[in-house]
Simulated scan of single mutants.
Amino acid sequence: MTSWVAIDFETANSLRGSPCSVGLAKVKEGQIVEEWSTLIRPPDGHDHFDAFNVGLHGITASDVEDAPRWPEVVERIVQFAGDTPFVAHNAAFDMGVLADACEASGLPVPDLRFACTLVIARRTWTGLLAYKLPVLTDALGIELPHHHDAGADARAAAHVMLAALKRQGTPALADLLAAHKIQMGSYRDGVRRGCLYRGAPPRKPFPDANPNADPDNPFYGRTVCFTGSLPGMTRNEAADRIAAFGARTVDNVTQAVDLLVVGRIDPAKLAPGAKKTGKLAKAESLRDNGHDITVIDAEEFYELLAVAEG
């Protein structure tokens, strides 16, 4: 597997089956050899544009009025990739977009394989506090001129994967995954198998969370803390939603916390002279001292919710 296709979707709203643009970057023998991107008119019933999403990517309903529909786009995606795997940053989200758009359009999900640069990056570059694509590309010196431009994000994800392969000393995707105990994701006959790290001890849900949650969802067994405000959602609502997936929420950052969600910060509420909240500063201090804690923003939190709820 020295050939693969990096893919990135942007969506019109919080529904995963609402793609409004896609970018693809084909890699062969360590080089990007072809790129393609297009706007997409989302499937009917999934075609409203939320202000939060428009604020991220700038695409509006009027921009996609004459764009191709999903059946045409997914056919082009499958043809572009051929029999090679897909690669995406937070592949569970992007592959979920593809699958849900097919379902919303009355189409079968094509059989495919995929690997996640987010999962791989966390095993390859273990000293980072956050692994969002702009943070990661900045740390690796990879150009990302326009985050949330699907073509630019797909190209950046391709370069992240190439950097991980180079660091491992192999051109083969399968060898990289095996070295880090990561399983390849897939859809087969409509059944999804995630791209997941399998080297950690199994997590357990907390007594006050849902004990029957899917153990492969991104919140299962995690201790989560919030700082700042989430657009369109209170902290109590967020805590209730992730409890359904086997997570618990705590008020303060301690060594028990492994996920800090940073929402919108009101500068007036910061301590005099401070540029970040006390919770974020504590998370950085814990990470510097070897504690395994990850920081995500509101956008990543909503993407993880979409994955978990899908």
Rank of each mutant, 00 (worst) to 15 (best):
P218E: 12
S14Q: 04
M184C: 06
K166D: 11
C102T: 07
E299M: 08
A268Y: 04
F301N: 00
G246M: 08
A200R: 08
H46D: 10
R248M: 10
V109C: 03
W125S: 08
A81H: 06
K275P: 02
H148P: 06
A281D: 01
V250P: 09
A115Y: 05
S37I: 08
Y220W: 05
A281E: 06
A247V: 01
A164P: 08
K204G: 02
P171V: 08
E103S: 04
A92R: 05
L129P: 11
R203W: 06
T249D: 09
L230I: 14
V160Y: 04
D83S: 15
A158I: 06
G82P: 09
D50R: 00
A271G: 07
G106Q: 05
L107G: 03
E309H: 11
F219D: 14
G263I: 03
T277I: 14
T223Y: 04
P202H: 02
R113L: 07
A154K: 03
N210L: 05
D83Q: 14
A88V: 09
P231I: 13
A150M: 06
G263V: 03
D100H: 01
D63C: 09
A121Q: 06
L118P: 10
P215W: 03
E309Q: 15
S14N: 00
I242A: 13
D240I: 12
D47Y: 03
S14H: 03
W36M: 08
M161S: 06
P42A: 10
L56F: 10
Q31M: 07
R188N: 02
E34V: 01
K275V: 15
W70T: 14
T126Y: 12
D240V: 11
D258C: 14
R203H: 02
I293L: 10
T249W: 03
I142E: 09
M184L: 13
E303L: 10
N289P: 03
S186A: 15
A81M: 09
R222D: 11
L177C: 11
S3Y: 02
L133N: 04
L173S: 02
R192V: 00
P207W: 15
A51Y: 01
A163L: 04
D175L: 05
E299P: 00
L107D: 10
A247G: 08
